[in-house]
Structure formats: C-alpha cells, structure tokens
C-alpha cells in the first residue's frame, strides 16, 4: 500500500479539489450535539466540517440504500424501471472505520444469492475516504474488531500531529490524491511513530468492552432467558436502533396505485423487525407476536444468527443504538448480563 502525508493546513484545499470529480459529502453538525453527512453545496461549506464528530445520526447506508425508493413503475402494459438519475460520483469524506465495516457488511448482504441492483447501482458510484477517530463513551468497535479497516476505503486519513497519514486503498483513491499531489509530502519515520502513538492512545481510550467470542453460543443457550421479557418491557419498539444501525437492512414492499387505477409504483421502505407487522403473514398470523420476541429476534440476528451465516456478527460497535435508545437499553450492559458478568 501507498502512504503519504497531508499537512492539516492543506486538508481544506484537498477536499475542495475533490469537487472537480464529484459531489463531496462531509460530516457537519445538526442540532446541538448531533452530526450528519451532508453534501457540500458550495466551497464555503468546508467551514461546517466537523472533523472530530462522534457519529452521524444515520449511517452511510442512506446513500446506497435509500429509506424509500421506487423499484419500478407498472401499468396494464407491464412494468418499467424508473428513469435513472444521471450518474454522479459521490465522495464521502471523514468516514470512521466502524462505518466502513458497516458498508462492507451490507455489501455482503446485498450481493448474496439475489444481488440487489438498486443498492449496487448507487454503491458503485460512491467513494469513501476514511478518517481516524477517538472513541467516546458509546463506542465499542474495538470489541467488535471493527476499529481498523484494510479494505472498503479509497483513502484513509489517520490523524498525526498537525498532519494526516494518508493510506491509499484503491486506484480511485490514488486518482483523488493525484488531483492535489503537490499538497502531499512523503512520510518519515517520525510520522510512523506518531501514528503508532495515536493507535496506542486510542486503544486506551475505549471505556466499554464486550466479549463477543462466546456471545453467540451463550445467546443460543439463553434463548428462553427471562432477560428477553425484561427487555421487552423496557423497549418501546420505536425502531430507532434499527434506523440508525449501519447494518440493519430489512425493508417492506408496497404498491402505490395511481388514481387512474391503471398504473402505479412498487416501492420499498426501510422496515424494522421490532415493528409489530414485520413478521405478520396471511391471516394476520404473527411469528413474533410479543415485543420481547421481537426484541430477542433483532438482537439474536445482529449478534448470533448473522454470525452463523457470515462468520461474524453484523454489529460494528458504532454505539448509535446505545446513544439513541430512548429507553437507554445498552447492548453492552445487557450482553455482559447474559454472559453472567
């Protein structure tokens, strides 16, 4: 891999140069203490960039897997795909390692037996530029082994004093770097040591930890545990955890008929297994009737059954579900409890 150094002062210019090849999205502040990825509409928007943001409200999935989208339009004559918007190259700057892992997880899911073209037609046009981060009180990516990435990014920026150590991940990333090659410098041994120091400091900064090695097994053994009923009582099924989760991917499909009664659109929308109707089938039979059942299902899928299929849990430890849960349900506390700690 190729590494270069970008002095921190040169960062704005590097980002502005990226606008020559695509739409650039950066983390900005929303509300009093939240953040979102938002498109830069004008060069001055660079001043809104929050390099030390904790996590965005929605993860990156909003870019590839739209909350609501039209799958096709139909009429008596058959169906047609909606007209594709002109292809735009989107570059998302400042993505944390856990979120890149989230995207890689969704790539796995959507590229399975039935490849999801809706997802990939957007995914292929989006470049990710990673950014190192310090954990806050909700982060547990180190426990999920998602605190570093070796793939999934075009460039990755790691903070070192007054500069960034930039790792090139793809040839596309190399092209982006070459747009501003004069802003970059060669790295020195001092930079490597600074990078290593940052890594050590970061490792020590994690306040939470979860042992996932035996978690799938214990969850399986505790399938009938009373813990699920207790959690079912606390949970409001509001669906927040699912919407903000980088790896929740369920959707519902519905038809929106036109008033002419001859045509319509088939649409899909993010769904959540905590919603009562999610597992409802014909005759109003519901496979997961109680909130406790639904809660257990979501959690088991995230930490246990996903691992059974894909070899690792789908949780990336981003901390969104912990920070955003109105009922303060904390996946780490409860997992520790179920593990008997």
């Amino acid at each position: 891999m190729k590494f270069l150094k970008l002095p921190a002062n040169n960062l704005p210019e590097f980002i502005l140069n990226l606008r020559k090849i695509g739409e650039v999205h950066i983390p900005i502040k929303k509300g009093e203490k939240s953040f979102v990825f938002r498109k830069m509409n004008k060069p001055q928007d660079i001043s809104l960039m929050q390099l030390d943001y904790s996590r965005t409200i929605l993860p990156l999935k909003k870019y590839f897997y739209h909350p609501t989208e039209t799958m096709f339009e139909f009429s008596r004559d058959g169906f047609v795909q909606p007209e594709k918007p002109p292809e735009v190259h989107d570059i998302i700057f400042g993505v944390h390692a856990c979120d890149i892992h989230g995207v890689l997880t969704l790539d796995l899911v959507f590229s399975g037996k039935y490849r999801d073209e809706y997802y990939f037609q957007r995914r292929k046009n989006i470049s990710l530029i990673g950014l190192s981060c310090m954990p806050d009180e909700f982060c547990f990516c180190n426990s999920m082994a998602t605190d570093y990435v070796d793939t999934g990014f075009d460039l990755f920026f790691s903070e070192i004093p007054e500069a960034y150590l930039v790792r090139v991940g793809t040839s596309k990333g190399d092209d982006m770097l070459n747009l501003s090659r004069e802003l970059f410098e060669e790295i020195t041994h001092k930079d490597i040591n600074a990078h290593k120091d940052y890594s050590i400091t970061r490792k020590k900064a994690f306040k939470r930890s979860l042992d996932i090695r035996n978690l799938p097994e214990i969850m399986d053994l505790e399938y009938e545990s009373n813990l699920w009923d207790e959690l079912g009582k606390r949970c409001t099924s509001c669906g927040t955890c699912s919407m903000v989760c980088p790896t929740c991917y369920c959707y519902r499909i519905f038809d929106d008929i036109s008033l002419d009664m001859e045509s319509g659109r088939r649409r899909r929308q993010w769904d959540c297994c905590l919603f009562r109707d999610h597992a409802m089938v014909a005759g109003r039979h519901n496979f997961r009737q109680s909130r406790a059942d639904r809660f257990k299902h979501r959690w088991l899928h995230k930490q246990q059954s996903f691992a059974g299929v894909f070899g690792r849990p789908s949780c990336v430890g981003c901390g969104r579900c912990i920070e955003d849960c109105p009922a303060k349900i904390d996946i780490i506390t409860e997992s520790n409890k179920i593990q008997g700690e």
Binding site: G31, I57, L58, C238, G239, V244, W270, F275, D324, P326
Partner: peptide, 17 residues
Amino acid sequence: FSLCSECKLKENECLLV
C-alpha cells in the same frame, strides 16, 4: 409503527434523548 423511525429518517436530532 412509531413516529421515531420517521424522525430518524429525517435525521432530526432526538429532542427526547
């Protein structure tokens, strides 16, 4: 389903939390 999910899709900062 409850309002929170629609609110999240708007990327509103959670007033409650």
